[in-house]
Design a protein around this nucleic acid. Structure first.
Length: 423
DNA sequence: TCTGGGGTCCTAGGACCC
DNA sequence: TCTGGGGTCCTAGGACCC
């Protein structure tokens, strides 16, 4: 049996954990640049008028009217709270897959069958006690059924107390008949629509379809999903996160930008970010894509979007080397006279640093020096905070292009200067 | 005025190899 | 009239996840 532990309204709950005054009050969290609503707690969802991913400016008046507290995204806080939750899970089982920032699969093999729900409740109570974060826990024989059980746990809290286990054939059938296709893990908008047109609305009805049909119309991914719903595990627990195959970043500017120098400084900063992630997973990049575009929502503005792929002359993880090529690409695709909204970089063709063929004629001493420099930078930034050391190409005018974050909460758990004050 | 960001996997078809 | 057989690699597009 597998358990899926998932934090309820994770971002909003992280904010509330340090703001007891907001208990039982509506809270939403916004995307980068305070653009869209990306998280809402139960109280905020109950207002109905706040659609997830709607731009926040469309809801200004409702937010004020209902006294909703609004936060900018505080990823330093969420990442640290996530780490704490995962550490707690580690006490309960050594077989864990951290699936996303707010959920994890836990293998319950070896635990007493009759006690899965009690065990889940124990996990839930421990996380709540140590972090202040409420969770929902679903238990089932496959990942997909654990996901489904989780959905049931969260939908019927009065009946389940946020823990539900699909541990009998009877419960499995009942769950499948209740589960709407659109709520299934692995069924997105497209497939839901397609199946609905054929008169198929529940997970149970999906399972009634012949395997061949599912295979032909929904690829092997759909077939695996069906078999998982039937109780046959097809999706393995991935305890070790595989290395990423691509690492990218692209953030909208807080304001529209036209100036080449400013855009290049933002790009250099993003390159430093992705290069640090690249080194953290011991990979090198063999290719890079740089792109830039204007704001498609400003229909009156002239629009422009372009990208450029560069095959790097050799695999590298050096920020300075990557910056050099990124700026070269930007120079090639930048056109003056546009209001730009976003610039981004994607590192691709990532290879393990130990599996790379070296240049037979290269001067190794320069590489070693460069490697040490990067290690020093990474250590300084880890200890003294993001951006403590940067390349000169990043400039000193971050405030000209950085994210808009007007309702940012303190980094309560990761910065000495921002600790929670108790009066 | 203001509209997110970061990923993965699968398939079909074309180009190419021997 | 008849035109092989067995493969790999790449890409664009479509689907999905959080």
């Amino acid at each position: 049996m597998l358990a899926l532990i998932d934090c309820n309204s994770f971002y909003a709950a992280c904010e509330q954990a340090f703001r007891p005054d907001l208990k039982n009050k509506p809270v939403v969290v916004l995307s980068n640049n305070d653009g869209c609503i990306v998280a809402a707690n139960r109280e905020a969802k109950a207002l109905k008028c706040l659609n997830m991913f709607d731009p926040v400016f469309k809801h200004k008046s409702e937010l004020v009217k209902h006294g909703v507290t609004v936060f900018s995204s505080n990823y330093a806080l969420y990442a640290d709270m996530s780490r704490r939750v995962m550490n707690i899970l580690g006490r309960f089982s050594s077989d864990i897959e951290v699936y996303s920032i707010d959920e994890a699969f836990v293998d319950l093999a070896g635990f007493d069958k009759s006690d899965h729900t009690a065990y889940g409740t124990n996990i839930r109570n421990t996380i709540l006690k140590y972090t202040g974060l409420p969770t929902g826990i679903g238990i089932g024989p496959t990942k997909t059924l654990a996901k489904a059980a989780n959905k049931i746990a969260k939908t019927f809290p009065q009946k389940t107390a946020y823990v539900y286990s699909i541990d009998s054939e009877h419960k499995r059938i009942k769950a499948l008949k209740w589960l709407q296709l659109k709520d299934l893990w692995g069924i997105g908008r497209r497939y839901a629509k397609k199946l609905n047109r054929l008169g198929i609305y529940t997970a149970y009805e999906l399972c009634m379809l012949p395997d061949d049909w599912v295979r032909n119309n929904m690829t092997v991914v759909g077939l695996k999903l069906k078999q998982e719903l039937e109780g046959t595990p097809c999706i393995e627990l991935e305890q070790v996160r595989p290395r990423k195959k691509a690492i990218g970043t692209a953030k909208s500017f807080g304001v529209k930008l036209s100036d080449y120098k400013l855009i290049s400084e933002a790009l250099a900063y993003y390159v430093a970010e992705v290069a640090e992630k690249l080194r953290a997973q011991n990979s090198l990049a063999e290719a890079m894509m740089v792109f830039i575009h204007t704001n498609q929502f400003r229909t009156k503005d002239k629009q422009y979007a372009r990208n450029m792929v560069i095959n790097l002359p050799r695999a590298t993880c050096s920020t300075t080397e990557l910056t050099h090529f990124a700026l070269k690409a930007l120079k090639a695709i930048y056109k003056p006279g546009y209001n730009y909204k976003k610039v981004g970089v994607l590192l691709a063709e990532l290879v393990n640093e130990n599996a790379v063929q070296k240049d037979l004629f290269a001067d190794e001493s320069a590489d070693i020096k460069q490697r040490k420099l990067m290690q020093a930078m990474d250590r300084i930034n880890l200890r003294f905070g993001k951006g403590s050391t940067l390349t000169a190409a990043c400039g000193v005018r971050r405030n000209k292009w950085k994210l808009r974050q007007q309702n940012l909460s303190p980094r309560y758990t990761t910065s000495w200067n921002e600790l929670l004050k108790v009066a």
